[in-house]
Amino acid sequence: MLKKFKDGAIDSVIDEMVEVVQNSKDEIFEISEEARKEHSTLLKEIEITKERVLEYINTGNKLETEVRNSRKKLAEVSKHFDRYSEKEIREVYDSTHLLQTRLIMLRQEERTLRDKRDSLERRLVSLMQTIDRAEDVASKISVVLNYLSDDFKKVNVIIEEARERQAFGLQIIEAQEEERKRISREIHDGPAQMLANILLRSELVERAYKKGNAQSALEEIKSVRKMVRSSLYEVRRIIYDLRPMALDDLGLIPTLKKYADTIADYNNTNIEFKMIGEERRLDSKYEVALFRLVQESLQNAIKHADAKLIQIKMEITKDNITLLIKDDGKGFDTSKKKDKSFGLIGMRERVEMLDGKLEVKSNVGKGTSVIIQVPNVL
């Protein structure tokens, strides 16, 4: 009874967390949509204002020409005062004065329109930054939501397995905590830092516009866009690391090829993938487990071994599936057991669940080879 209560309580907490995160995501989406609507309205208003400014400029230029001609006429009348009647003199004077007054009012209205246009453009820039930030935050919330909905839903299963295998359960939980810390660290060092930089850059854009330095503001906007693209790339990479959708859609082999190319590009590392035997779909649990094993091996080779060349070979025969992940990194002494080496512990557990074997060969300065062999279940 106690076990059922605890499991139910955990489910309730998880469901509540998922609901809160989903509501937050919906609210951010609504903010983004409202900002987009206002952005569209501002664009139209800016275009109309620009057209009116242009009309005022053209009208003002014509009026200036009329004022100059009228002044010439007034100068002519003043010079030859005795040739013109009092009525003609007054008409010339009144006409010149009226034209000058109209020109002053027109230029004042033109300046007002220019100020309005500049204000609208500043609001437009601010709105774009709001939209970009909202989309970036929504993307990261999607990562969190996926993590809550997918991985946390398995907590009850993990707890049950931990009760059955208490000796190994604690290591599993600690390994999960390490994974969460890794994801948290990646988000903090990547997208979160970039968001902070984007915020600072947006303030520089605002200052530049207030000072009237449009060119500097434009350069800052370009820089902000690059940061947003980089942040989006980071978020997508983290999502891909959690679970690539291609694994369910295309299968293990295409996903491994794509993952190897992605990791190679991101870390500037040479990764070679070679397939031997028939390329076909495997049982779902085999595809997920083998992908995670390759993923963990690649991360170890890149982060801990400083490898420049990593070779992945996969062979599917009638009886077995064999994986070899070999790197040219700094290697390590396999006789010395490292504290909290949960990466290898997790890998061994996955292989044991598939009734397979895991062998790690390594020497200091001579690289590392990870050999995985599991039975081929047709």
Rank of each mutant, 00 (worst) to 15 (best):
K154T: 05
L120S: 03
E296G: 05
L290R: 05
D328E: 00
D249E: 14
T322P: 06
E279T: 06
R107M: 05
V205G: 01
L145H: 00
Y84L: 06
R123P: 06
Q295L: 02
K181A: 07
E45Q: 04
Y56F: 12
E55N: 14
M194K: 15
T317G: 07
D189I: 11
L195E: 13
S335T: 14
L195C: 00
T130F: 11
L120P: 02
V77F: 15
H39Q: 12
K226S: 12
L293E: 00
H188F: 15
E161Q: 06
L323M: 07
F342W: 14
L113V: 08
E91G: 05
K153W: 12
I310Q: 02
I239D: 05
V294R: 00
E186D: 14
L378R: 12
K285W: 04
E177D: 08
Q100T: 09
S32P: 02
R207K: 15
Y93V: 10
L199D: 11
I325N: 01
D136K: 12
I302H: 01
Y84R: 05
V228N: 01
R281N: 06
N146H: 09
L106E: 01
D249M: 06
I276F: 13
L120I: 04
V288W: 01
A208N: 07
L344N: 13
K303V: 07
S149Y: 02
K79E: 12
V235E: 04
K318P: 07
R71N: 13
L195N: 05
S184Y: 15
R165P: 01
K336V: 13
D136F: 11
Q373G: 04
E47H: 09
R185H: 12
D241M: 01
R122E: 12
D248C: 02
V224S: 00
E27C: 10
T317H: 06
S231E: 09
S40Q: 03
L309C: 00
I239F: 03
V224C: 04
V18A: 00
E38M: 14
Q299V: 03
L124W: 04
K313N: 06
G356Y: 02
L252Q: 00
R107P: 07
L200H: 13
E64S: 12
S119P: 06
E76N: 15
K44I: 07
S369K: 15
